[in-house]
């Protein structure tokens, strides 16, 4: 799967939202936390995963790219 955020670790700094080269993330209006929305455009570059200050994001390859 593309980015999966562990909300137990996420502090809502929005770095993933700011930096994603394909703008995959959006900010949830209610929680004000980032969430991956345009998943079909994720190219699994790992920028969100490597930039997250709390290491709260997991990236794995989905079945269709395996």
């Amino acid at each position: 799967m593309p980015a999966k955020i562990d909300y137990k670790k996420c502090i809502g700094c929005k770095r993933c939202y700011d930096l994603c080269p394909m703008d995959v993330f959006a900010i949830d209006k209610e929680t004000e936390m980032p969430k991956p929305v345009y998943n079909e455009e994720c190219w699994h570059c790992g920028i969100c995963w490597m930039e997250c200050p709390k290491r709260a994001i997991d990236i794995t390859y989905p079945a269709s790219m395996w």
Partner: peptide
């Protein structure tokens, strides 16, 4: 290192 200092992977790298 990232876990120890509680920083991002890229910083730790």
């Amino acid at each position: 290192h990232a876990a120890k200092k509680d920083i991002s992977y890229v910083k730790a790298a």
